[in-house]
Write a protein that binds this DNA or RNA. Structure first.
Lengths: 138, 138
DNA sequence: GATATATAATTGAGTAATCAAGTATTATTC
DNA sequence: GAATAATACTTGATTACTCAATTATATATC
């Protein structure tokens, strides 16, 4: 008797690689990687498009130092801007710039297309169910 | 109106990071990473515990060169062995060693535990359904 | 059966992440 | 209110990959 839980994790990992390859190569057109897209995604959702770096790390699922390293080039090409938190000088806030918003909007069209092509085997109903399950595990 | 497909991909990626962190830190006890566990997993499933490097790459979801780089240390500690394919000299086969089998068996106990702890929010029935959906996307 | 094309694997160079340690600031405790 | 602990972030060193190019072999085509 096989363990379904372990099986699920293995299959999940396989799917991850497929998604990553596909999304990365498609988003490449907009000059961003999938991780960068995710980062922009969370900034776009955030109130005032501002987040603390540590919360961004938590959201995207990478380490604090990973965020620092990812943001450096994104700041250079002005996708995001650094802001100070007057209440707490330890914190360095990240804000989605106008350029960032534009790029994100454009990339989102591509991403939606990629997402649809990956999930086309499932009906909306099935996908909704699956998203519900996934959310319970995150 | 939000795109459910895109949402699903984002949630999937979040779950991936959670799984990876958890699995890596747990498997660490056995001296292997999650990718190494996956590699052993596919070798363990393979007939005669032998696979071509390129098929291993495809299974695990990394590049051919990634496999070469991953296997080097695993060969050194004798988890796997190199074998020649007499029919095709381009191919270099990889075989799960006896040590590898033992380590994999031990790590599988840990991994099953990790997998259960990640998926505990879902019933077996739900998980079965989710695995079915995931398989359709891979 | 020689030439062109395809396949399997490796290697060099580069990138993206990690962890551990360090800095700066804020919060807690006595 | 001084000392200790906690938090947010950055940096150095390392690791785990990637892609492009290379080597070696096998297959297809003319």
């Amino acid at each position: 008797m096989k363990e379904i839980e372990a099986d699920f994790i293995i299959q999940h990992a396989r799917l991850t690689h497929k998604i990553l390859r596909r999304a990365d190569s498609q988003l490449n057109i907009h000059g961003i990687s999938f991780s960068e897209y995710m980062l922009l995604y969370y900034l776009n959702e955030a109130p005032n498009n501002v987040m603390r770096r540590i919360d961004l790390a938590e959201a995207v699922g990478i380490s604090a130092s990973g965020v620092t390293r990812m943001l450096a080039p994104m700041e250079k090409i002005k996708l995001v801007e650094k802001e100070i938190n007057p209440r707490d000088a330890r914190v360095s806030l990240v804000k989605l710039s106008e350029t960032g918003k534009t790029i994100f909007a454009e990339a989102s069209v591509t991403f939606a297309h990629t997402a649809k092509s990956i999930t086309h085997a499932l009906t909306t109903e099935q996908l909704k169910k699956m998203l519900g399950f996934t959310s319970q595990l995150v």
